[in-house]
């Protein structure tokens, strides 16, 4: 459902108008006929409305950088499905198994980045470290070292990192 892209931070509506006899793509107000698209490593070539062009490309996550005719463009894709990760980012960190808290690595108020360790837990003779799934601020610590918890127990509450 690629309906919009951002080109150098300007929004452009994208649509596919036809696929035969050529691919016809609508950008904003105009249609463009595209064919002969080839990618070889970091280089690409294609024909737009019959005119052959070639350049360089590089993908950086949701952004594609294109260098064409002496200019670099940044094209960002929007995908509604990416916020699935956002919805999965619980602001609640819960225990998936019962166990004991071995160590608490953060204090209330700490700002954490994605991947920062929050707690080390021990369950069934296995130790695991819970890390922050996204940048956030530690709002509440519901457990301390040596706390025992049940499955599903709320261990840490996170808040948005911008809240100061």
């Amino acid at each position: 459902m690629l309906s919009r892209v951002y080109v150098d931070e300007r929004e452009v509506e994208v649509g596919i108008r036809a696929r035969r006899p050529q691919l016809l793509v609508r950008l904003g107000e105009r249609d463009y006929a595209v064919d002969d698209f080839v990618i070889a490593g970091a280089e690409f070539s294609l024909r737009v409305d019959g005119q052959p062009l070639s350049g360089w490309w590089y993908r950086r996550g949701e952004e594609l950088q294109i260098r064409l005719a002496g200019r670099t463009y940044s094209v960002q894709f929007t995908s509604h499905a990416k916020s699935a990760a956002a919805t999965a980012r619980a602001h609640e960190v819960r225990a998936s198994m019962p166990g004991v808290v071995v160590a608490v690595h953060r204090a209330v108020g700490d700002v954490v980045a994605a991947g920062d360790a929050l707690l080390t837990l021990e369950s069934m003779k296995l130790q695991a470290t819970l890390v922050a799934s996204h940048a956030a601020r530690v709002a509440v610590l519901h457990v301390a070292a040596q706390s025992v918890f049940e499955r599903g127990a709320l261990l840490v509450s996170l808040a948005a990192a911008e809240d100061a």
Binding site: L2, V5, D8, V12, V34, V48, L64, I66, L68, Y73
Partner: peptide
């Protein structure tokens, strides 16, 4: 930078097809 270069559309198309 000028917003509309002659090749801006081509760049977008190349990016789209690179996806």
């Amino acid at each position: 930078p000028s917003a509309d270069t002659p090749h801006a559309a081509a760049a977008v198309l190349a990016a789209l097809l690179g996806d």
